[in-house]
C-alpha cells in the first residue's frame, strides 16, 4: 500500500509567538514601563518634595525654554517643581487604576459567571442592571456620586470600580455560555460535580484569559476618567498631586505658563498610549480572529 501523506489543507499559519515579537508592544511597554518606574521610584528620583513651595521661584519656565536647570520642567504658581509632581502624580493614577480594576473584575466576573451559568431569571436581572448602568452618562454620574458622598480617594476608587463592572460581566457571560456546552463541562456534570465546583474548577480558569483582554480595554478608560474627575476638582483631594489636578492648576496660566498644564497631560497621554499599544498586541495574540485581521 502506498503510504498516505497527510498534508494540511490550510496554509501554515504564522506562529504568534510571544507578544515581544511585535514592535508596537515593545514600544508600548517602554512608554508604560517608564511611567510606572517613574511613579514607583518617585520618592527617590524626584529632585524636590512634590509639595515644597518656593514662592520666589513661581512659574519658572522649563530648562529648555529659557528656565534654569534647577527645575527641568519648570515650576507652578506656588513654585513647586513640576517634574517632581509629575513623577508623584503617577502614583495616584496607577493606584486608582489598579484598585478600580480589582473591584471591576471581581464584581464583573462573579456576576458574569452567575448570569451565564444559571441563565433564566438571574441572567435577565443581571443583564438589565448592566443595561441600566450603561445608560448612565458615565463621567457625570461619577461626578454626582462623588459630590454627594464627598470627594475622597476611597470614594473615587469605589465608584470607578462600580461603574466598570458591566463590561466585564457581559464578556464573561458570553464566554460562559459557550463553555457551558463543552464536553469537559458536560463530563464534570455527569461525574456528579456540583454547580459551584464546575464554576470554580472548570469554567473560571477558562474565563481568566479573556479578563486580561478586557482589562487592557478598560484600564485606559479608568485612568482617563480619574484624570477628568481630578481635573474637575472632584477626584483626589487637592493637596495630593495627581495629573488631572495639575492640568487644572495650570488652566488660568495657559497663555503665559503653558508648562504647568502641558507636562502632566503628556504623562497621561504616554501612560494611556502605552497601555493601549500593549493591549492591542495582547488582544491580537490571544484572539485568533483579530490576529487574522492584522
Amino acid at each position: 500500500m502506498v503510504g498516505l501523506q497527510i498534508t494540511s489543507s490550510t496554509p501554515v499559519r504564522r506562529r504568534p509567538g510571544t507578544i515581544w515579537r511585535h514592535k508596537s508592544a515593545i514600544f508600548g511597554l517602554i512608554l508604560f514601563g517608564s511611567m510606572l518606574i517613574g511613579a514607583l521610584l518617585a520618592g527617590w528620583v524626584s529632585p524636590y518634595d512634590p509639595g515644597a513651595q518656593d514662592l520666589s521661584a513661581s512659574l519658572q519656565p522649563p530648562a529648555f525654554a529659557g528656565g534654569s536647570t534647577e527645575h527641568l520642567l519648570g515650576t507652578d504658581r506656588l513654585g513647586r517643581d513640576i517634574l517632581s509632581r509629575v513623577l508623584h502624580g503617577g502614583r495616584i493614577s496607577l493606584l486608582v487604576a489598579v484598585a478600580a480594576f480589582a473591584i471591576q473584575s471581581t464584581v464583573g466576573t462573579l456576576l458574569g459567571l452567575l448570569s451565564g451559568y444559571l441563565g433564566g431569571r438571574v441572567d435577565q436581572v443581571i443583564m438589565r442592571i448592566a443595561d441600566i448602568q450603561l445608560a448612565l452618562p458615565g463621567l457625570v454620574a461619577l461626578l454626582a456620586a462623588v459630590a454627594i458622598f464627598g470627594p475622597s480617594l476611597f470614594n473615587l476608587i469605589l465608584f470607578l470600580g462600580i461603574a466598570g463592572w458591566p463590561g466585564y460581566a457581559r464578556i464573561v457571560r458570553s464566554e460562559v455560555l459557550s463553555l457551558r456546552e463543552r464536553d469537559f463541562v458536560e463530563a464534570a456534570r455527569v461525574l456528579g460535580a456540583t454547580r459551584g465546583r464546575i464554576l470554580r474548577a472548570h469554567i473560571l480558569p477558562n474565563v481568566l484569559t479573556s479578563l486580561i483582554v478586557i482589562a487592557t480595554i478598560a484600564t485606559p478608560g479608568v485612568i482617563l476618567a480619574e484624570a477628568s474627575l481630578s481635573f474637575l476638582g472632584l477626584g483626589a483631594p487637592p493637596d495630593v498631586p495627581t495629573w488631572g489636578t495639575m492640568v487644572n492648576d495650570g488652566r488660568p496660566f495657559i497663555a503665559t505658563a503653558w508648562w504647568v498644564s502641558m507636562f502632566p497631560g503628556l504623562a497621561i497621554v504616554v501612560t494611556v498610549l502605552g497601555i493601549n499599544l500593549l493591549g492591542d498586541t495582547i488582544r491580537d495574540v490571544m484572539d485568533p480572529r483579530s490576529r487574522r485581521l492584522r
Binding site: S228, V247, G265, V269, V272, L273
Partner: peptide, 15 residues
C-alpha cells in the same frame, strides 16, 4: 488613531 484615543479631552482642549 490610537494616540487620538489616548489623549485626555480636557488636556487636548487646553493645548
Amino acid at each position: 488613531a490610537l494616540t487620538g484615543l489616548s489623549i485626555p479631552d480636557f488636556w487636548l482642549g487646553l493645548m
